[in-house]
């Protein structure tokens, strides 16, 4: 926007070239997804017989029903439910915990406040992958293998979200807290009635990011769910790949991939307006 004359000059040939470039780039990115979509609508034989078809076949319902109802190790519908519970649990859990810890760190003067902040900050350097063995030990010790709590709890602590909310709370004028105090609000009433509604665009933005983070978890569910009924969809796809001489049911695998993409897309599109507002400005 700053360079206005540049934009005007781009009219005509330059504009077409830009669009052409963007469209080619888009096709390039979109092509694998298109292939997956095509592969999920044809038969195994069509895929095995080169050249691979580039237009959708007529086995859409058959393949998707097979995936959803029976899948390969576990029904995909069931894996999606598991993924949904895990992603929602992680997103809500992270938001609740980080909101509360940011609230404590910003608004209360308690001994060791700084220490706690830096401890939380330190955990940024310790994602699940780094602490996976001890975390596994702990979760196994609590008997949480093959359970939703085992899938969710170890991933809930979030330094990033805590930090984000801390930064936001620090931009809220002190007088607001004081006005609420004069109005007779208790600290939790202030949190619920004032801070929470003021943070809603930030919460929405974070929800989108965290939902996708939770949905895309791979290593952790792979490690702690041995029971196929607890499999999540992202790890489930990988599990569908054949080992040894088994043959791969590509149409079903591709249908599963497409299905796995749908919920994150729905969340992003559905929350797009709030999401962008939350990233761009905060309502004060």
């Amino acid at each position: 926007m700053a360079d206005h004359s540049g934009m005007v000059e781009k009219r005509g040939f330059g504009l077409w070239m830009t669009h052409l470039g963007l469209i080619i780039g888009l096709l390039f990115v979109f092509f694998p997804i298109w292939l997956a979509l095509v592969a999920s609508t044809v038969t195994q034989a069509d895929i095995m017989d080169p050249p691979m078809p580039l237009l959708p076949g007529d086995h859409f319902f058959e393949n998707y029903r097979k995936a959803l109802v029976s899948g390969i190790n576990a029904p995909v519908a069931w894996m999606m439910v598991n993924s949904m519970i895990m992603a929602l649990g992680i997103a809500f859990g992270k938001i609740v915990i980080s909101l509360l810890s940011a609230f404590a760190i910003v608004y209360f003067r308690f001994p060791g406040r700084r220490t706690f902040f830096w401890l939380i900050f330190l955990t940024l350097m310790l994602p699940v992958e780094v602490r996976i063995v001890p975390t596994y030990e702990v979760v196994a010790g609590f008997g949480m293998l093959n359970s939703y709590s085992g899938l969710i709890f170890p991933l809930i602590a979030s330094a990033t979200a805590t930090f984000l909310f801390r930064q936001f709370f620090m931009t809220v004028p002190d007088e607001l807290a004081e006005a609420a105090r004069v109005d007779g609000a208790s600290p939790m009433q202030f949190f619920r009635d004032i801070l929470l509604p003021m943070s809603r665009t930030n919460i929405a933005a974070l929800f989108v990011i965290l939902f996708i983070y939770g949905w895309n978890q791979y290593l952790w569910p792979l490690l702690i769910t041995t029971d196929p009924s607890m499999n999540t969809i992202v790890m489930g796809i990988k599990q569908m790949f054949p080992s040894g001489d088994d043959f791969a049911d590509w149409p079903v695998i591709m249908a599963t991939s497409i299905l796995a993409m749908i919920p994150p897309v729905i969340v992003v599109v559905g929350m797009q307006r709030l999401f962008i507002r939350g990233l761009v400005d905060s309502e004060k």
Binding site: E175, E178, A179, A180, V182, D193, I194, M198, E283
Partner: peptide, 18 residues
């Protein structure tokens, strides 16, 4: 503050924005 039977008007008004 609430038990002192006072009310305060702040310089930047401190209205609840939402």
């Amino acid at each position: 503050p609430m038990d002192r039977d006072i009310a305060m008007v702040f310089q930047n008004y401190a209205l609840y924005p939402h």
